[in-house]
Amino acid sequence: MNHTVHIAIQIVPITDKPHYAIIDKAIEVIDRSGVSYKVGAMETVMQGDYDTLMRVAKEAQQACLEAGADEVAVTLKVHGRKHGNVSWDEKGIDRGR
């Protein structure tokens, strides 16, 4: 995919430790990456080029493991186009970060 896409990521830590602190580590990775993103109640949606976003998704998963998760269950959703970019504006979504 050569255009801007949206990738939604949901990471569910499997551990007996508090989940939110672990999930926050994933969001920190996304924030530091510099990609545009929006945190929702059930997933975080990122906007950018496919390869960059997949790299960030991998790093976010690793951050959760390093923060104490024994395992992670991850759901990814990709919205891409053959011709043209996917954008926050067309969906009526505030840009987020």
Rank of each mutant, 00 (worst) to 15 (best):
N2T: 10
N2Q: 13
N2C: 06
H3I: 02
H3S: 03
T4M: 14
T4C: 10
V5R: 02
V5A: 03
V5C: 07
A8Q: 11
I9A: 15
Q10D: 14
Q10T: 15
I11K: 03
V12E: 08
P13M: 09
T15D: 02
D16H: 04
K17H: 07
P18R: 05
H19L: 13
H19T: 08
Y20E: 12
Y20I: 13
Y20C: 12
I22M: 14
I22P: 00
I22L: 14
I23W: 08
K25Y: 07
A26S: 15
A26L: 13
A26G: 15
E28K: 15
E28H: 15
V29G: 09
V29D: 01
I30Q: 13
I30F: 14
D31F: 06
S33P: 05
V35L: 12
Y37I: 07
V39F: 07
V39M: 10
V39E: 00
G40P: 04
A41S: 06
M42Y: 07
T44E: 05
V45W: 07
M46I: 08
Q47A: 12
Q47P: 02
G48F: 06
D49V: 04
D49T: 05
Y50T: 05
D51H: 09
D51Y: 06
T52M: 09
L53H: 06
L53S: 03
M54N: 13
R55N: 13
V56C: 06
V56S: 05
A57R: 01
K58D: 14
K58H: 13
K58T: 11
K58A: 14
E59M: 09
A60L: 07
A63P: 08
L65D: 08
L65T: 10
G68D: 02
G68F: 01
A69I: 08
A69C: 07
D70G: 12
D70Y: 06
D70H: 09
E71W: 12
E71R: 15
E71A: 13
V72T: 15
A73Y: 08
V74E: 01
T75M: 15
T75I: 11
L76T: 09
K77W: 09
V78I: 15
V78Q: 11
V78G: 01
H79C: 09
G80P: 00
G80V: 00
R81S: 01
K82S: 04
K82L: 09
H83Y: 00
H83Q: 05
G84K: 01
G84P: 01
N85T: 02
V86F: 01
V86M: 00
W88T: 14
E90M: 00
K91A: 14
K91T: 11
K91N: 10
K91M: 14
G92Q: 02
G92F: 05
G92D: 05
D94S: 13
D94G: 12
R97I: 10
R97H: 11
